[in-house]
């Protein structure tokens, strides 16, 4: 069941997606964190961020919109107050990082690299809900590569770059960050969307637009993972509307070496564990010894 992402060995290919699992403690009553492949924590910035004003979420057909705006405690409080909790567990911790500038990305990366108990960094160049940084880095191959280089220069940890689907050619961005030294890419972040209240003719979200997640985006995510996996040699981590073991396996067959479970956690806190168990059963039933043997085995 174990997989390797940029030198980081995971006991299984199932991680939590950033922003859907808090700092781990929120779900510790529901999930034995030791069983997870990795925990990707909520995006961290240099200073604490207030986030966007509410309403921040809206249910949609087969999913939800969110415009949280990267509310977080900041990297220092994370290291001091949240990381010790996670160190109690035998689980890989991946810190998702965000910056308004390349300098901020590199500063956050440096601090986390010096902290005990962080095993990899996931660089968020794809948040659609913040004014500065985020998506603006992720939608330009050159800017995405620059952020990647700056982060790589500050850390010995594996660097995963999380990509946005809100671009014309996601594989071009993936190639660009690979050339810049990224150890893996994860995709997709949310798709930008909106919803309107008919009674008031106002947007349901205060931010007007938000990021769409949930099973509604799975086919789009799967297509992008497939496209990217053909164009890069580094590991691809599949994200986007994975609710069941079947969904996870589809991503792996399309070329994902690992997967992240996001919005599914909200409606079924046991989703990660059920998917891990499900993969184990699938491998047993199909007499597959090594999970890596199914990665990228799509027949076309």
């Amino acid at each position: 069941m174990s997989v390797e992402i940029g030198g980081l060995k995971l006991k299984n290919p199932v991680m939590t997606a950033s922003g859907t699992f808090g700092y781990g403690e929120e779900y510790a009553d529901y999930v034995d964190l030791n069983q997870l492949g990795a925990i990707v924590v909520k995006g961290l910035s240099l200073k604490p961020r207030l986030g966007n004003p509410p309403p921040r979420i809206m249910e949609t057909a087969g999913g939800m919109l969110n415009a949280v705006g990267l509310q977080n405690v900041g990297v220092d409080v994370f290291i001091k107050e949240k990381l010790p909790f996670l160190r109690q567990y035998d689980v890989a911790v991946i810190a998702n990082i965000y910056g308004e500038s390349t300098l901020e990305y590199s500063q956050v990366a440096k601090k986390l690299s010096q902290a005990e108990g962080v095993h990899a960094l996931e660089v968020n160049v794809s948040c659609p809900n913040v004014k500065k940084g985020g998506l603006s880095f992720g939608s330009d191959p050159k800017a995405a590569a620059e952020v990647t280089r700056r982060v790589k220069a500050e850390t010995h940890l594996p660097v995963i770059v999380k990509l946005t689907p809100n671009v014309t050619d996601i594989a071009a961005i993936a190639q660009s960050v690979e050339e810049a030294g990224a150890d893996a890419v994860s995709l997709i972040n949310t798709l930008t969307g909106m919803a309107i209240d008919l009674k008031t003719r106002t947007p349901h979200l205060k931010n007007i637009t938000g990021g769409l997640s949930g099973p509604a985006i799975k086919p789009v995510a799967l297509r992008m993972v497939w496209q990217v996996a053909q164009r890069v040699a580094i590991p691809v981590i599949g994200i986007g509307g994975i609710m069941t073991v079947e969904d996870a396996l589809e991503f792996m067959i399309a070329g994902a070496k690992a997967v992240q479970i996001g919005t599914a956690n909200f409606i079924n806190p046991h989703a990660t564990i059920e998917i891990i168990d499900g993969i184990r059963h699938y491998l047993q039933n199909n007499k597959i010894k090594n999970i890596n043997d199914i990665v990228g085995t799509l027949r076309t």
Partner: peptide, 27 residues
């Protein structure tokens, strides 16, 4: 009362603006 997704504090979707311990605004 607020719209919620997770109910356990993970999604940070159901926030309200309050004064924190130092009287500064926080969600």
């Amino acid at each position: 009362e607020e719209r919620m997704a997770c109910g356990v504090g993970a999604c940070v979707g159901c926030v309200v603006a309050v004064k924190d311990g130092q009287g500064k605004p926080a969600y």
